Computed example of a mutant assay.
Amino acid sequence: MNINQIVEEAVDFRRELHRFPELSDEEFETSERIQKQLQALDIPFETGFAGTGVLAIIEGKHEGKTVGLRADIDALPIHEVSGESFSSENEGVMHACGHDAHTSMLVAVGKVLMERRDEIHGTVLLIFQPAEEKSPTGGSQRMMDEGIFKGREPDVLLAQHVWPGLPVGQFGVMAGPIMGNSDRFKLIIKGSGGHASMPNDTVDAIIVGTQVVNALQTIVSRNSDPFEPAVVTVGKFQAGSQHNVIAETAEIVGTIRTQSNEMKALVKERFHKIVDNVTEAMGASVEIEYLDGYPATVNSGKWAEHMHGTISKLYGEEALPDLRPSLAGEDFGRFLLKYPGVYYWLGTSIGEGQKPLHNPSFRVNEDAFKYGIEAMSQGAIDTLETLKENQH
């Protein structure tokens, strides 16, 4: 097996996917491209889960348990300005979160595992999941609801995500929460508009809205435990139409991120009370739309330690720095509510000039592909070996 050739082919496929990104629930060509790759490798697969999802099945030479490996396949509604020679050709759509890398690396893992089938005790499922970016619905729950694991329940699930904050050759593996609860909200504040010179005859929706925004910041600063992560972010505030007209309505959109379910419940309760009471006190009314998003991504302690061991054997302890969790949301968290597993980060920093995930200039260091492919394929084999040993 020539790992360098496999890596080179993975990079080529990643660039193809990057040029033709597709939004959540619209990954039709992406799905076709994945299927062609699997056909060329003689890996059996099934399609249609959550619309465009694909499940490939690799049977090892020996009987055993089942491990699932997941990659997300959708892109974001972002206009790319990365300067890459293989930049997006689909206007306003970009792989700004590395899902193209995840997908191409998982196909490459399939190549590796097909060549190492005599080392596999059991079954490996390659899960190509759509709509990861479509919070709060996502694609993982729909895949499970549509029976992707019927008759082949995984004993352990693994997923990796490119991480621009880590240098190539390093990984982020941790037990417990690694990604956060990601809820979102939309407020429509209704006041009473009028002439700018006569504010006494109005209820200014802009003034009410600014008070709501300010008051929401007290949830984190005064209600939450300082040692419990929580973030309340207002990402959009729209109101008003003219310089001489007092706004009748204001729209406020934002997100709430927490790690524990207890903190999520506290912040949600305080959010509703503050919004209701502030608007009422100022003579306005409000419509609240609160969407419970992805649950926190919580890794199994046992399997996080196991993946840590696999990576340590491959690259040494120095490849595993001690890191803190992120409050970014991740649809893989829903898989982990039902099945034990590990979600870990793969260092992909380009160094100076690196932009964060979801940035229109986001870039991935393709030197990381060798590490991602090796770690995930070895992780699958090691996991099945441990599951076999635990049977006896």
Rank of each mutant, 00 (worst) to 15 (best):
F128H: 08
F128A: 12
Q129M: 05
A131D: 06
E133H: 06
E133Q: 09
K134S: 13
Q141P: 08
Q141I: 14
R142K: 06
M144K: 08
D145R: 11
D145Y: 02
G147F: 11
G147L: 15
F149G: 09
G151V: 02
G151D: 14
G151Q: 13
R152I: 06
E153S: 15
D155N: 15
D155S: 14
V156N: 04
L157T: 11
L158T: 10
L158P: 05
A159Q: 15
Q160D: 13
W163K: 09
W163E: 14
G165F: 08
G165P: 12
G165K: 07
L166G: 12
P167Y: 13
P167K: 10
P167M: 13
V168G: 13
G169P: 15
Q170G: 04
Q170E: 14
Q170H: 06
F171D: 12
A175D: 15
A175R: 14
G176Y: 04
G176S: 10
P177W: 03
I178G: 07
I178V: 15
M179P: 09
M179I: 10
G180V: 03
N181Y: 15
S182L: 03
S182C: 02
D183G: 03
F185C: 00
F185I: 11
K186R: 07
K186F: 04
I189W: 07
I189F: 01
I189D: 09
K190S: 05
G191Q: 05
G191S: 02
G194T: 12
H195A: 09
M198R: 05
M198I: 06
N200P: 04
T202S: 11
A205K: 01
A205I: 02
I206E: 03
I207S: 04
V208R: 02
G209F: 01
T210L: 08
T210R: 03
Q211N: 01
V213H: 10
V213Q: 03
L216P: 04
T218W: 03
V220Y: 00
R222L: 09
R222G: 06
N223R: 01
N223K: 02
N223G: 04
D225N: 15
P226E: 03
F227W: 12
F227T: 11
E228H: 12
P229I: 11
P229K: 00
A230E: 05
V231Q: 03
V232T: 03
V234P: 04
V234K: 06
G235T: 15
G235D: 13
Q238I: 14
Q238F: 08
A239I: 14
A239L: 10
S241I: 15
